[in-house]
Amino acid sequence: MTGTWESHSLRGPRDRVALREFKTAFERVEPLASGRIAGVGSRLHLELELSDGIGSADSGRFDVAWSTQDDYSIHYTCPNGPDTRWDRHCHEYTTPGDDRHFHPPPNASTTDSDVEESCIRVCQITLVAMTTAKLWRVMYDTGDTSTANTISNPP
């Protein structure tokens, strides 16, 4: 369960308050989601279960870690399905130049040339949660994970 995402480089300690804020905001906009705070200390994180999955998967889950300095790791997995991650923390990848980066599906690649700039540009916890829920909902409705890091809707 833990250890499935790189959490080592979040700045500042893990923050329960932020995780509850994320859970509340996500559940408010996504009826298929149900969250619980899990782990303590350095393993503290939010598990958001989705009661249906993208494409052929019949469930999915976000694991969210968040620090007091608003670094985060938002990791989506589902059984036999795509695995992807939106992060904000210091990193050593060639791109992007800033802290907010994206590990693309199907396996949340950590290969240097695969890592991209994250489409999540908002900072406020509630807005990050709402953006994540929206990105998930678009993938769920289309069954297509290629929009996982797509910021824009057509006009």
Binding site: R28, V29, C119, I120, R121, V122, T126, L127, M130, T131, K134, L135, T150, I151, S152, N153, P154, P155
Partner: peptide, 19 residues
């Protein structure tokens, strides 16, 4: 943004504000 495309991020700010 200049491309006249509404970004998800801005949409969600408006939604947060409305709710």
């Amino acid at each position: 943004d200049p491309a006249d495309r509404r970004s998800i991020n801005d949409d969600l700010k408006a939604q947060w504000k409305a709710k």
